[in-house]
Design a protein around this nucleic acid. Structure first.
Lengths: 182, 182
DNA sequence: GACTATACGGAGAGTGTCTCCGTTTGGCAA
DNA sequence: TTGCCAAACGGAGACACTCTCCGTATAGTC
């Protein structure tokens, strides 16, 4: 890739990060291009769709997911606490941008989604939690990681849309946890 | 209201019902106006926003909700079956239009939403199910109808976004039910 | 320094939202 | 019946966003 192309690509990602944080996932892509100081054509050449751009700005986020699940799994304690701890972390992780929870959760299990890699990172992290709980025989049978992602993602989506705070989200996560634990 | 205004209002509602069914909740409002045979100005005078229009086309749906909960409560059987039966009915009721689950669930508990009356109808119906289960001491403590609506609405939203079928939705609803039952 | 593949930029086509204002009409009073 | 006018209509058009096309600029190579 030519040096100017590389530079513009990075500028676009940085601009998108800022604009999406300020205005949410629905922000105008022309605004992103303008913030980056490039033309619309340049933006669309690098990132043919909004989702591809989203995927790119989430690279550093992948590391954060993996760090987060490591940290959660470190914690010794009751299975219910572990599970709830992961659920709350999960909600935080997918709620970094307005509209994020819906976007990520609807792509979960869709092989052709442009953000499939991000979903896989989340699913694998969740699988590690499932594995740990199964070792301890703490989970009911037939509980799959993808179901966990969908349920908790559903709660995060509702919370995102309705501006619910953590206090309102907590009891919803508890219901899900109790429904999954043996 | 003048007779022509009344007539146009009804035409618009009928047209919106058709267009939303065919094209989903995101369909162009100009398309609705055109289908109704009126100008865009007439549409926006009657219905200042998409949500207000949605609210209007859902009038008959209110009756359907009430019929549905009556029918579910008639059913004798285990509490778990009753609860799951209501959950599946609930998902069907709010999934009549693409985008409906997110719209309805995010407005749940928001007094200023244009579709607040529809949310209340759903919440009251769900409350009747909660009351019945509490009579039978089948429910855990501190379970509120609005939480039920949010959890099941979250599942419906995910299913709507990700095109999940009933078979994929069922186990998610089971987790929620098990998390709520004593 | 010249060449060319690569990348850039922004005008503009396509689409949707919503408003404004000149025109039409329903309903009433005389 | 007729005349009046408040109420309602309609659609052009301003504005916003997405995405493409193509003339222009330039990075990298020889």
């Amino acid at each position: 890739m030519r040096a100017d192309a590389q530079r513009n690509r990075e500028r676009l990602i940085e601009a998108a990060r800022e604009v999406f944080r300020e205005q949410g996932y629905d922000a105008s892509l022309d605004a992103v291009a303008k913030r980056a100081g490039v033309g619309a054509g340049t933006l669309y050449r690098h990132f043919p769709s909004r989702d591809v751009l989203m995927d790119a700005i989430m690279q550093s986020w992948v590391d954060r997911v993996n760090d987060a699940v490591d940290k959660v799994l470190l914690h010794e304690g009751a299975p219910r606490d572990l599970l709830l701890s992961w659920f709350e972390t999960y909600v935080d992780l997918i709620s970094m941008h307005k509209g994020g929870p819906a976007k990520i959760t609807s792509a979960m299990g869709d092989e052709s989604s442009p953000i499939v890699t991000k979903c896989q990172v989340l699913a694998r992290a969740t699988q590690r939690v499932v594995d740990r709980l199964e070792e301890e025989h703490a989970l009911r049978e037939h509980i799959e990681a993808v179901q966990m992602c969908r349920l908790v993602g559903g709660v995060a989506t509702v919370a995102d849309n309705a501006d619910l705070d953590r206090a309102a989200v907590r009891p919803l996560l508890e219901v899900i946890a109790d429904g999954m634990l043996a």
